[in-house]
Design a protein around this nucleic acid. Structure first.
Ligand SMILES: NC(=O)c1ccc[n+]([C@@H]2O[C@H](COP(=O)([O-])OP(=O)(O)OC[C@H]3O[C@@H](n4cnc5c(N)ncnc54)[C@H](O)[C@@H]3O)[C@@H](O)[C@H]2O)c1
Ligand SMILES: NC(=O)c1ccc[n+]([C@@H]2O[C@H](COP(=O)([O-])OP(=O)(O)OC[C@H]3O[C@@H](n4cnc5c(N)ncnc54)[C@H](O)[C@@H]3O)[C@@H](O)[C@H]2O)c1
Lengths: 211, 211
DNA sequence: CCAGCTATGTGCACTATTTCACAATATCGT
DNA sequence: ACGATATTGTGAAATAGTGCACATAGCTGG
């Protein structure tokens, strides 16, 4: 049971991917799907799908496949997305605003309950989603009182480490960082980075190789 | 020569990461850096740094380290970011606009030369960066006449595949996709996906495990 | 109740990636 | 000029992840 500690990170990421087509299938009234079909929808190997799921239990029926609704429930349980999460976002530039407005996150249970910026001209402004931009000086106070669990960093790079430290120190359990720098992190806090430019550079490398 | 074909994808992504601190070091007037220091700045193993670089040549000096400026030039040469790239973006919602406005991309040589949307109320609008939003019906024409090499997709998910097909058919060599769906792709076109929600789910999984 | 069919769950071999450990080599001080 | 020192470049070992192949087990129809 506690082999959960050595589950490959790619498995976790794929589980999240599997849930996307499953949601469409549910709308589609497709009751059952095979590992082969799901694999094709996600661009992976069918054995991979079965193995990924097998880390967590036996969710399929031999000779039949997986019940779409049940499987989705199980995956959400595994990923802990069967509950709501409380988040805040620091840095309300273009990217920060786009993320705060995005409906998809809300739909998946990621609730932004606070938005921070250090630019005085932005503070107090109300976003279309209803959030009011707070000064960064209130981060500690609000993270604690609103029990914020995840922090999103969309500040400019030179401020990112400072706010990460502040968030961690205030009790945030995880950080999603969009600033293109390497954040030093404490053990008590899990961090994920998203760097679009890295992806573009990867693409550039491949195109250039072909030419 | 053709051992380039078996260079690990993680190596390419790390090379992009290495270039970030190197740029700061340049400003900092630090002339030389060891694999150990660079590794620490990037949160990886020093042997990894050396091996990654060794795929492409010998850039260091034994007993000394790597010349910061030279190394940066070499990495840019490898990643083909020592030149400009021509890009377009399809879907000028919040995220699309944030990306088009971002100065970092321009600074790194990624030039957005066209922006498309299918919403008639948006077409014709001028973005702060100077781009005029074109109707998606002009994608094929403009990709060809402006020699656009990379397409960025920030449309809503259900339109993403259609525009990906159109971009590929128009001659784009690579696509960066932000819509949370699996895009079917042709061999002639390299695709990278960025899915923030997957990262959040990864974080949620880890936090929930600890509790 | 059994035979035939189908698709899962999984041991194992294979492939990919990371890390170790050390020989090779450049520099510096004397 | 040479030994001490530092740090690279790299084969080989260790670790991680993927995919095959098949025994296993549920379902259906007779
Ligand atoms: N914003 C984010 O943080 C974020 C994060 C991850 C993925 N994405 C994905 O990126 C894509 C774009 O996201 P976004 O936040 O820019 O979305 P958005 O709502 O700002 O706009 C997206 C697109 O939909 C069109 N659109 C939106 N509302 C419309 C309307 N009422 N009528 C006609 N067209 C309309 C716009 O023209 C635009 O092209 C989506 O696929 C989304 O899932 C966004
Ligand atoms: N927009 C993107 O596509 C994108 C992509 C990848 C990474 N990022 C990163 O995300 C972060 C935010 O990007 P963004 O596009 O939202 O940046 P942005 O320029 O829209 O704003 C970023 C932040 O800087 C502050 N700011 C900007 N201009 C200011 C000014 N003149 N005076 C005072 N404060 C000012 C804002 O208050 C905001 O908090 C950056 O670290 C960027 O590198 C952005």
């Amino acid at each position: 049971m506690n082999k959960e500690s050595k589950i490959p990170a790619p498995t976790i990421e794929r589980l999240a991917h599997y849930s996307r087509p499953l949601e469409s299938l549910l709308d589609n009234e497709t009751p059952v799907i095979s590992s082969e079909k799901l694999a094709r929808l996600c661009g992976v190997n069918p054995a991979q799908v079965r193995k990924d799921l097998a880390y967590f239990g036996e969710f399929g029926v031999r000779g039949v496949g997986y019940d779409v609704r049940d499987l989705l429930v199980e995956i959400k349980k595994i990923l802990a997305t069967d509950r709501d999460w409380t988040l805040c976002i620091v840095g309300m530039g273009n990217l920060g605003s786009a993320i705060a407005e995005n409906e998809n996150f809300k739909k998946r249970g990621y609730k932004f309950v606070a938005a921070f910026d250090s630019d005085p001209t932005k503070i107090g402004r109300t976003l279309p989603c209803g959030l009011i931009i707070e000064p960064t000086s209130r981060i500690r106070e609000l993270v604690k009182s609103l029990k914020i669990e995840i922090g999103v960093i969309t500040t400019r790079p030179h401020e990112a480490q400072r706010f990460a430290d502040l968030l961690m120190d205030s009790g945030v359990k995880a950080i999603l960082n969009f600033a293109p720098i390497q954040i030093r992190t404490l053990d008590c806090c899990k961090i994920e980075n998203v760097d679009f430019a890295v992806k573009l550079e990867h693409l550039a490398y491949h195109i250039a190789k072909i030419l």
